[in-house]
Simulated assay, not measured.
Amino acid sequence: MTFGFTPPPSADPASRLGRMLEPSEWAAAGIPLLRNPREVVTGLHSRHLPTPSTAVVAVLDPEERLTASASFSRTGAAAADGWEFRNALLTQLRRVIPHDLRRRTPVRTAVLLYCRDGESQWTQEDGAWMWGLRDACTLHGLRCGAYITLTREGWQILGEGRSGRRPHSASLRTALDITATGDGKAAPLSQPHSGAHDALSHSAAV
Score class of each variant (00 low, 15 high):
residue 74 R to G: 07
residue 82 G to A: 02
residue 26 W to I: 03
residue 202 H to K: 10
residue 23 P to T: 06
residue 200 L to T: 03
residue 186 A to V: 08
residue 30 G to M: 00
residue 102 R to P: 04
residue 164 G to Y: 04
residue 107 V to D: 13
residue 71 S to D: 07
residue 160 E to T: 15
residue 62 P to A: 02
residue 175 A to E: 13
residue 101 L to T: 08
residue 42 T to H: 10
residue 186 A to Q: 06
residue 100 D to W: 09
residue 21 L to N: 01
residue 30 G to H: 02
residue 78 A to G: 12
residue 128 A to W: 09
residue 40 V to W: 01
residue 196 A to H: 05
residue 50 P to C: 05
residue 90 L to Q: 14
residue 84 E to K: 14
residue 11 A to C: 08
residue 47 R to P: 03
residue 62 P to G: 06
residue 55 A to C: 09
residue 71 S to K: 04
residue 185 K to T: 12
residue 6 T to L: 15
residue 152 R to G: 15
residue 177 D to R: 01
residue 76 G to I: 04
residue 7 P to K: 03
residue 100 D to T: 06
residue 37 P to S: 11
residue 190 S to N: 11
residue 205 A to S: 12
residue 190 S to D: 15
residue 101 L to W: 01
residue 178 I to P: 00
residue 96 V to A: 13
residue 178 I to G: 00
residue 196 A to W: 06
residue 87 N to W: 09
residue 186 A to L: 01
residue 28 A to F: 02
residue 144 C to S: 07
residue 68 A to E: 06
residue 126 D to Q: 03
residue 107 V to K: 05
residue 123 T to K: 08
residue 204 A to E: 15
residue 137 C to H: 04
residue 187 A to P: 01
residue 130 M to V: 08
residue 150 L to H: 10
residue 174 T to P: 01
residue 144 C to F: 01
residue 131 W to K: 03
residue 100 D to H: 11
residue 50 P to E: 07
residue 148 I to Q: 10
residue 8 P to N: 09
residue 22 E to Y: 02
residue 84 E to C: 13
residue 129 W to C: 04
residue 44 L to A: 13
residue 202 H to Q: 13
residue 181 T to S: 05
residue 34 L to G: 07
residue 113 L to W: 09
residue 58 A to Y: 03
residue 173 R to T: 01
residue 79 A to Q: 07
residue 139 L to E: 13
residue 60 L to M: 06
residue 128 A to G: 11
residue 146 A to D: 03
